[in-house]
Design a binder for these strands. Structure first.
Lengths: 349, 349
DNA sequence: CTGAAAGCGCTAACAG
DNA sequence: CTGTTAGCGCTTTCAG
């Protein structure tokens, strides 16, 4: 049997109430008792039972987080940022992956709720299919969506301003002289895919450059490689390619290079996220940096304010991204791109 | 206030015991009662409180897992495999990252223990500094080490046979005609780093080829790139380079290619792990495949058998890896390497 | 200041 | 088969 506070109290020769008070330090006890309790606890190797405490306090000191997958460097980066942020408030993170499946996601939500997490941060995998489970969860516990979100205003959200990011990307390649630009992204089952394509299309229309039908697959390296092959096979190449994320961009770079292309001489490539290997690929990738730390901080802050099933209008916080210009794109005449030797992964353009 | 089983019982007009029995289905009740309870539960949106159940049952139905970092694709892969395996037994996984810090690791162990996980799977970040916390945890709860392990026989372990893997790697490049081979790995603060270097050195001694001082840094892409530069700057190149993991190998490939080298004509490169981008890099990487699924399955199986502070001798299970030959290395005369078009990521050589 | 006791939500005896 | 009740370990009234 594990040692309980009763054992500590008995060994210290005090009541459990005193032991509890001494251990928590949240109420005054005589130094004498504090001392005896501390010694007894140490001697017995007492470790408080967080389960019992949670039942009693009706709060677990944990928040749950669900992301589509931990294989994607963007999500691991944002998970780490959230964890760091939570650590400041002494809250533990329970991490789950939905594996890009709304069914798995719903199950994970269910078990996190059953375990009575104090709050939930989620990046819903599907803009449509995730709706019922997310709304249901939001009714039971404070919940904020981070990055991806569902097509319904029932829950708070914090993420990047995709529209602004895409504007920056398009304006950048146009300033570099591009007359034609295509978009390579993900199929439209999640909000990021939709908003980035939409932002791209509006930016292109505004600046008046040519574009062809977007290539939509997945947010993966593999799809980037495949999309590059299709571009090579499909007639005249555009002057620039704007990608839905960095994974796609890195894959694209690879297959276009294999096809004999040079960057940025033959074609400019721009990514989105600025996580993972954007600085380490060849050439280093021009990309739209997501302010991951700020997003995580804002999500945690908001979570502290949200109450379950709060009648107040849902908040939507879109944080402005910044373009990081490296060597995969042609800069505007006169502009100086970041030099390889200075690349720290933290710079903004 | 959340709805409890008392509410359900009241609405159904039965006792809490009957409600509990009906809900769990673990004991017979009349169909009549089962029906009424089910309806009441549905109507009220009842969701069992896992915290209360855990306190009552003295078991949480969760196991904790601690890995050094979720940014490393090897760890995310093995986490996913463990999660899949656990799912078969209806057990939930609580994932933590130690961020390669023994202090953080000790804190995470502490909170997982406080939350009364039923077991622990850990890849200790430091072969020396992780010892006390891991041994202490193993005394309290069933624990198995996966992949990395501490320098002490106090806890079970399952991992790959690093020695055999390195033999295969070295024998392969030697069969391909290499007369000199160097090792690029990680500094020796963890077991993988030590065992792989040791295995490499013994294999090299056995086969009689030349070698130079190993290059030791970290298990990262960045270090692979840096090591490649050092190799290019440091006089005559070896015929082959064997790497401590795939991240290093991919980085090495990149900087050696930038330096004008061709693979495998100028130099053979072999990785270790076969996860992440080993199939997607240029050229596809010859590497030692870790049998991740089997390792995860074995770890979970073992965890089911282990009792806390079990006096029986600690088990050590080393699973044999297999060499996957792709295009980054020169095959033995007459051997056929895997062709690019056939690459599925699941083949064995 | 200290101790006795209630109660968080649940399940498993134990009677009936 | 059903209901009453004890108790998992903890904290916090409530008296003293």
């Amino acid at each position: 049997m594990r040692v309980t506070i009763h054992d500590v109290a008995r060994v210290a020769g005090v009541s459990v109430a005193s032991a509890s008070r001494a251990l928590s330090g949240r109420r005054k006890v005589t130094p004498e008792i504090a001392e005896r309790v501390a010694r007894a606890a140490a001697e017995l190797g007492y470790q408080p039972n967080a389960v019992a405490k949670a039942l009693r306090d009706q709060t677990t000191g944990t928040i749950g987080m669900i992301v589509p997958g931990i294989g994607n460097p963007f999500f691991t980066t944002i998970v780490e940022a959230v964890e760091r942020e939570l650590q400041k408030t002494g809250t533990d993170l329970v991490l789950c992956a939905s594996q890009y499946s709304p069914e798995v996601e719903a199950r994970r939500l269910e078990t996190l709720l059953a375990r009575r997490v104090d709050g939930l941060i989620i990046s819903p995998c599907d803009i449509e299919a995730s709706v019922p489970a997310v709304l249901d969860a939001a009714r039971r516990v404070p919940l904020v969506q981070l990055d991806r979100h569902i097509a319904s205003a029932g829950a708070d959200w914090v993420g990047v301003d995709d529209e602004a990011g895409m504007s920056q990307a398009v304006d950048h390649v146009v300033a570099g002289g591009a007359r034609s630009v295509v978009f390579v992204g993900s199929r439209l089952m999640n909000s990021s895919a939709r908003l980035r394509l939409g932002g791209f299309e509006r930016a292109v229309a505004r600046s008046g450059v040519q574009t062809a039908a977007p290539l939509l697959g997945e947010f993966t390296l593999e799809w980037g490689i495949e999309a590059g092959r299709r571009l090579l096979d499909g007639g005249p190449l555009p002057d620039a390619v704007v990608c839905g994320n960095d994974e796609i961009a890195v894959g694209l770079l690879r297959s276009l290079r294999t096809g004999g292309l040079r960057f940025p001489a033959d074609v400019s490539v721009v990514g989105f996220d600025d996580v993972g290997h954007a600085t380490m690929c060849d050439p280093p990738l021009t990309t739209v940096r997501q302010p991951v730390e700020e997003m995580a901080a804002e999500a945690v802050r908001l979570l502290g304010q949200v109450k379950a099933d709060d009648p107040r209008p849902a908040q939507r916080v879109a944080i402005a991204p910044s373009l990081v210009v490296r060597q995969s794109s042609r800069p505007a005449a006169g502009a100086t791109p970041e030099r390889p030797g200075r690349s720290t992964g933290r710079e903004t353009a």
